[in-house]
Computed example of a mutant assay.
Amino acid sequence: MSKDLKVLVSSNDFPESAIKILSDKFTVVVSRYSNYGESARTVNREELLRLIPGCAALVWCSDSPITKELLDAAGDSLKVVATSSAGYNHCAVDELRARGIRLSNTPDVLAPAVAEVAVSLILGAARRLTENLAQVRKGVWEIGFSKCLGQDLRGSTVGIVGLGGIGRAVVKRLAGFEVGRFLYTGHREKPEGKALGAQFVSLQELLRSSDVIVLAAPLTDETRRMINAETLAMMKSNAILVNVGRGDLVDQDALYDALKNNKIYGAGLDVTSPEPLPRDHKLLTLDNVFILPHIGSATVRTRRDMAELAGNNVVRALSGEPLLTPVLE
């Protein structure tokens, strides 16, 4: 390891503890700008293109896509990309593979925080928090024994689409709510599911049987818009759909129609497409959807742990060791 090796950190808000992991061994170059929102598409794009030539590693802090233009600017010096995220659909995986560039992500460390947000979304949709918060802000409350009634989790069937780290953490946190049964679906049955008392079923069976459906799957060609008009039609009229995966798992036009026409009871979304969701988006006109601004991993501890894992992956990659959490070795 050598200070001659340069590491580029793509955003100006990367935790200092992770910067120290890198700067103890390498020369660290940090963008002056945020790699989120409008700046990611404008000033930071130009900044990264200027800074990346000669860099051996790129720490990616964003769900904005890594472009071929950026990789071309990096040239042959780039050996590893460490994305500070569990998902990596934004990382141009095929392009990195073709160039022989290693890729790591940060799974598992964010599972507890994302699971907490999933539970919040379930409760928000089940107890009609969007509608009820609007009452508070207006100062006009619907008061009565049969007003503003929500749904119980007690005795319900909860279906998890993707029993990875986040899905398992959701099941563990919901166990105390006296859920009747847990279902899950995926490519295969998992021993972890049996240990949690969750039953492996087909996607169709899960959609037809569940009162709450939690999407915790990665975005792939197979899962893109897996929730669409056809699959929404399989759900129960009291079903609540929660998405903590990626916005494009859901056809939002079809979801809007299902919610608007009360084909399902409600939805809770921490991820949307696009992000941010425009203020005039039609989903925001509905009372039966509870939307958060992609804050699943947004706790001090979790973001620090994600950043430090990304930093340690870079250290291992540039010292010729196996990655801690490899996507491409």
Rank of each mutant, 00 (worst) to 15 (best):
E192A: 15
A258W: 02
V212S: 00
T220D: 14
N262A: 14
A317S: 13
D211A: 09
E192H: 02
G197C: 09
L324N: 03
L309A: 04
L309Y: 02
R303M: 13
G245S: 05
R303E: 13
A307C: 08
D253E: 15
E275F: 11
L309K: 02
R304H: 10
G193C: 10
E189A: 15
L196Y: 08
I295S: 09
L283V: 10
G180S: 11
L183K: 03
A239R: 05
Y184M: 09
T220A: 13
V300N: 11
S202H: 07
L283T: 05
A307Q: 07
D287Q: 15
L203H: 05
V271L: 12
T302R: 04
V289G: 04
R304L: 12
M234C: 10
A239L: 03
N313V: 03
R304T: 15
L269G: 05
G296N: 05
L206V: 12
K236N: 04
I240K: 01
N312G: 01
V250K: 12
T185H: 04
L203P: 05
L241C: 09
K260N: 13
N228H: 06
V212Q: 01
K236M: 02
Q252H: 15
P191S: 04
A310Q: 09
E222N: 11
T299P: 05
V214H: 03
V289N: 03
Q199W: 00
V314D: 04
I264S: 01
D251A: 08
S210F: 03
L318C: 06
A310T: 12
P293D: 11
L292A: 14
G266N: 09
L241I: 15
A317G: 04
L269C: 09
V250M: 11
A267Y: 07
V271D: 07
G197K: 09
R279D: 12
I295H: 08
G296R: 03
Y184I: 07
E275H: 10
R304M: 12
L318Q: 01
D287G: 14
P322N: 08
T299N: 06
M234P: 00
L323K: 06
L283Q: 07
L269E: 08
A298R: 06
D248Y: 00
L206K: 01
L324S: 05
Q199T: 15
T285Q: 10
T223M: 05
S202C: 07
E205H: 11
K260P: 00
L318D: 03
S202P: 06
G180Y: 10
Q252G: 00
E308K: 03
M226D: 02
P274V: 05
P322I: 13
D257E: 15
D287E: 14
E308A: 01
S273P: 01
I213Q: 03
H294Q: 10
E230L: 08
V271Y: 09
A216L: 12
V250L: 11
V214T: 09
E321I: 03
L203C: 05
G268M: 10
P191K: 02
E321Y: 06
P278W: 09
V242T: 08
N243W: 12
R181G: 01
E192D: 14
L241R: 07
R208Q: 14
T302N: 07
Q204P: 00
A217F: 05
V201Q: 01
V201K: 02
E178V: 03
P274H: 06
A258Y: 02
K263C: 00
